[in-house]
Simulated scan of single mutants.
Amino acid sequence: MTTGAADDGDGADDRPDPGLDVIMSERRQLINVAYRLLGSLAEAEDAVQETYARWYAMPQRQRDAIESPGAWLTTVASRVCLNLLSSARVRRETYVGDWLPEPLPERGEWSTGRPGGAAVDPADRVTLDESVNLAFLVVLEAMTPAERVAFILHDVFCHSFAEVADIVGRTPAACRQLASSARRRVRDARPSATPAAQRAAVVRDFKQAWEAKDIEALIALLDPEATATADGGGLALTFLHPIEGAEQIAQAWTEIARRKPATMTFLERTVNGQPGLVAEEDGATVTVFAFDVAADRIKHIWVVRNPEKLRGWPTA
Score class of each variant (00 low, 15 high):
269 R>Q: 10
149 V>M: 09
224 P>T: 06
252 A>T: 07
301 I>W: 00
89 R>A: 04
194 T>Q: 01
56 Y>F: 15
109 E>L: 10
254 T>C: 15
171 T>W: 04
231 D>A: 10
119 A>I: 13
51 T>R: 03
138 V>P: 02
185 R>W: 00
200 A>C: 05
312 G>K: 09
309 K>D: 09
304 V>F: 01
247 E>W: 05
79 R>H: 07
174 A>G: 08
294 A>T: 12
194 T>C: 06
202 V>K: 10
185 R>I: 00
175 C>N: 11
105 P>L: 14
305 R>K: 09
262 A>L: 13
221 L>S: 09
229 T>G: 04
150 A>H: 12
234 G>S: 00
166 D>P: 01
271 V>R: 02
213 K>G: 07
68 S>Q: 11
90 V>R: 14
261 P>Q: 10
85 L>P: 04
139 V>L: 01
206 F>L: 11
58 M>Q: 14
100 L>E: 10
312 G>L: 14
167 I>W: 14
28 R>E: 03
147 E>M: 11
129 D>A: 06
132 V>A: 08
154 H>G: 00
169 G>R: 12
66 I>G: 03
174 A>E: 15
176 R>Y: 04
105 P>V: 09
104 L>W: 13
100 L>T: 02
225 E>L: 15
88 A>W: 14
78 S>T: 10
47 A>I: 05
307 P>M: 05
283 G>N: 01
38 L>T: 07
198 Q>Y: 03
269 R>A: 13
262 A>I: 13
200 A>D: 09
82 L>Q: 14
262 A>V: 13
78 S>I: 05
166 D>C: 05
133 N>T: 01
198 Q>T: 10
5 A>R: 04
